[in-house]
Design a binder for these strands. Structure first.
Lengths: 146, 146
DNA sequence: CTTGAAGCTACAGTAGCTAGAGACATTAGA
DNA sequence: TCTAATGTCTCTAGCTACTGTAGCTTCAAG
């Protein structure tokens, strides 16, 4: 049995985050010690590790909730889990493409700004002049890459 | 002079977002028509377009605020703007690397889940078994790629 | 037995929007 | 010119995924 601190260390998740996950029902309520402290089993560690990795892969907590409930009753075809993973993969590919083109643009910006004054510097110009801009014309708020 | 809706369309930013930007002081307060509706000049459009592109490049609103204030008094060396852009570039390169490795892993997951049942499917296993995992051991919460 | 770290609850705050309610303004068509 | 539709106004609340604070209790080491 692990205390919350050890669990957090083992899984690579901060203690308040674990409590938050419990609070929103992503993790089951933990057993408690005589002194009311949370105690975790190895199984709980696996579950939390799963959550952490899924988060790193960019899954939302909702998607993770789905995956966990799938894994809790494993006598079903795994098409559902597969669909979630595939959707995630598509998302990641989109982000990769965007980041790659953004990188090109930022590189150009930095290269052009070679110690001049701002008036001569194109860092800002590149960002306000659309014709100089390699990015596509997608919907704007899609810009918040998370 | 543009109404807020036209401005939003021209810049590719949603109307409530423009009002939000004004509210937090990222954009100056707009002129008003006789009927109290916001009116925007071409300069305002440039500024908003700048903000939009900067957001797409992953700059935080705080960084954008800095860049805007730099561009508002351009008689300084552009080292500061350059530094902001360079920091951003480093960020983007980190994200690119992570997303690339995540993509490999997700691809593997999807490939392994070829119509079996969840019990035989490694989508979930891959995510709970650290030894199968290609991602690094960074700090977990860094997972939210903003 | 004491001290300091780690745990507890509860609540507030963060970024960057997004959505809804209810009222007023503007514009296009009959 | 009237009307209906659309656009805009303010305000408030909500969202995700945490993070931080305050003020307390519990636990392990020396």
């Amino acid at each position: 049995m692990l205390t919350i601190g050890k669990l957090g260390q083992a899984a690579g998740v901060k203690v308040p985050t674990i409590r938050y996950y419990e609070q929103i029902g992503l993790l089951p309520e933990a057993e408690r010690s005589a002194g009311n402290q949370r105690l975790y089993s190895r199984k709980a560690l696996d579950r939390l590790t799963f959550v952490r990795h899924a988060r790193e892969l960019g899954f939302t907590l909702d998607a993770i909730r789905d995956l966990l409930s799938l894994s809790d009753n494993p006598d079903q075809p795994c098409a559902a889990a597969d669909a979630i993973a595939k959707a995630q993969l598509a998302e990641i590919e989109k982000r990769l493409a965007r980041l790659a083109s953004l990188k090109v643009e930022l590189n150009r910006m930095v290269a052009q700004c070679a110690g001049g004054r701002i008036a001569d510097c194109r860092v800002i110009e590149v960002l306000s002049n659309h014709s100089l801009c390699a990015t596509d014309h997608r919907h704007p708020q899609a810009g918040n890459d998370h």
